[in-house]
């Protein structure tokens, strides 16, 4: 796997505040290979967004290393990002704040194209990106407010991909969208990033969607990864008690009226356990 690795994270710690600091991410490491989709799942407040932001460098890391194609990823500061680092792009949860409301969407996708060119990569036409995310290419001259949330998110995806990233980090990119478009947009992200040969870290609390699009999955609880491995392996046979509870609690839309299993309060204590055999699981 190490041959195609685009992103390598080791021992990431993110803390907020001081005295006592709140440890949101508590020593997490993972790798993403080119063309691979890794999903990060867990309940709200488990630290998955903090981890994503720390990986990209938006959030300061208290400890740990992140390398993009072997190069250390710096924290986003005043200095402009080097062309190598523009090889990591991010898609945010809220499509309404992801685009500059005062600039035409064509120009904003063009920013991505320019980032690719600055790196010496191939350029592209913003209109063509609109077509690829299923929007009318003629709409490049429109402003963000003329689009729905789902469409804005697809424009943000187009902008990120126009930069020809090696790595795409998506922080709950579908949770603010209407239910009927969530799966489609997630699937679109997968197909475009795989097609581009980029790695993708896809953060979501929607486990059924994750199962459809992720090659591997990281299950996070209270700042730690409790289970990880090939998606189907984890789904078929979850080992960690938290993963088991999580999967059992998903309501299935089969029309049978089966209530999902609610974990007993007493079971929650076991969710904090470390279970080494639940990590890095493969089908083999």
């Amino acid at each position: 796997m190490s041959a195609g690795t685009v992103l390598e994270a080791e021992g990431i710690v993110v803390e907020y505040g001081r005295r006592p600091p709140l440890r949101a991410v508590d020593g997490v490491g993972f790798r993403v290979a080119a063309g691979e989709v890794v999903a990060l799942v867990g309940e709200s407040g488990c630290g998955k967004s903090s981890l994503a932001r720390a990986v990209v460098g938006i959030e300061k890391r208290r400890a740990g290393d992140v390398r993009l194609n072997g190069a250390d990823v710096p924290t986003l500061g005043l200095r402009r990002r080097s062309p190598v680092m523009t090889g990591m792009q991010m898609v945010f949860q809220d499509p309404n704040s992801s685009l500059n409301p005062r600039r035409r969407i064509g120009e904003q996708i063009g920013d991505g194209v320019r980032a690719a060119l600055a790196r010496g990569d191939e350029g592209s036409d913003p209109a063509d990106w609109l077509r690829r995310v299923g929007l009318d290419p003629a709409m490049v001259t429109r402003f963000p407010h003329e689009f729905s949330g789902g469409q804005k998110q697809r424009i943000a995806i187009a902008r990120a991909l126009a930069a020809r990233p090696r790595m795409l980090v998506a922080d709950e990119p579908i949770s603010a969208l209407d239910a009927s478009t969530q799966t489609s947009v997630a699937a679109l992200m997968r197909s475009l990033s795989v097609e581009a040969g980029a790695g993708m870290l896809f953060i979501s609390h929607d486990l059924s969607v994750v199962r459809r699009i992720a090659d591997r999955v990281l299950v996070m609880y209270r700042g730690r990864v409790v289970e990880s491995g090939d998606t189907e392996t984890v789904w078929q046979n979850p080992l960690h008690p938290y993963t088991r509870a999580l999967l059992a609690a998903i309501p299935l839309p089969d029309g049978l009226g089966r209530l999902p299993l609610a974990p007993a309060e007493a079971d929650r204590a076991a969710w904090l356990d470390d279970l080494p055999e639940a990590l890095e699981r493969t089908s083999a």
């Binding site: 938006i58 990002r81 991010m90 704040s97 992801s98 685009l99 920013d111 980032a115 600055a118």
Partner: peptide, 10 residues
């Protein structure tokens, strides 16, 4: 987010 996105684009 859009300012951060811009920064990530260099």
């Amino acid at each position: 987010n859009y300012v951060v996105s811009g920064q990530l684009l260099g």
